[in-house]
Amino acid sequence: MSETTPTSETDRTTTEEPDRETTEEPNQTTTEEPNQTTTAESTEADDSTNATTHTTTGEADERVREEWREYEFAGKPKFAVEDLDVHYGDDHALQGVSIEIPENSVTALIGPSGCGKSTFLRCLNRMNDRIKGARVDGSVRIDGREIYQDGVNLVELRKRVGMVFQSPNPFPKSIRENVAYGPAKHGDIETGLLARLLGRSDEAARDRLVEECLRDAALWEEVNDRLEDNALGLSGGQQQRLCIARCLSVDPEVILMDEPASALDPIATARIEDLIEQLSEEYTVVIVTHNMQQAARISDQTAVFLTGGELVEYGDTDQVFEDPRSERVEDYITGKFG
């Protein structure tokens, strides 16, 4: 708590460069929200940190320290992100995020709404390219290979880094077609009319793949007798597991999940959580969640983003939840704001 530094009114509107040394602490980053109120609500600042100002949402102002984001892990990093900045037009959505994500584990991204979790996730498979006005600066490496450079094959990248979205979005097609969609479009299985005429139809291979993916997504038992039915007839939880199966069908290495259970009831959520734990044995899972208990339950390490698009704390999940190093993270986790 003693590290928190009071900020004056005058430099409130400027955003400090991450590498600018403003205090006695080296490598200290200071980032402030330009739109926050200036009144220090000292009555609410309960303890000795009278100097700490609070935002309207009750969020304390403090300087982010580099060592809060240091996380040592054994094994190779799957992703190595360095100084990632994302702008949407003039809106600075992510500020200098650096993080390394270990292989075959579950990494949870938590933080209040609008703090850039989804934006960060979309940087990992370059889905931000699809958003007009989005600009990404910095470096993201997957297995040591930079994905923000010319000549990156987006098809291959997105095959390796699959994504499951917040609201279940199966195609308005049959369950089977949904799962087989990716491989069919990549030409891995051919079941078209021409293939059938030429006697090269991979229907058996396709059915095997569909079954395997649906089994991996823990959906096979529920739908194996109605693979021809339209996927939109499934329940929300089933649809989301179908989306996971669809994602698995292109044999990814990483699965990005953006609040995959936020639209689901508790039972469906529990099934998805079980599924994520199983998937982490084979895949690297990065999951955004609003639900802190969920993050605590399923993840190996947790990254906390806070308002303004900065990564404030990153570490082992138990450590982040039991002994957060940042005051703001503690406030967020204990539900003081967010």
Binding site: M127, F165, F171, P172, G182, H186, C247
Partner: peptide, 25 residues
């Protein structure tokens, strides 16, 4: 819905294939 386009793109499917197999149908 754009969700269909996003879902298809996230599978690495090209824009033209997405249009042909998802958007136009």
């Amino acid at each position: 819905p754009d969700e269909y386009r996003d879902a298809s793109a996230a599978l690495g499917v090209s824009k033209w294939h997405t249009i042909r197999s998802v958007v136009v149908p």
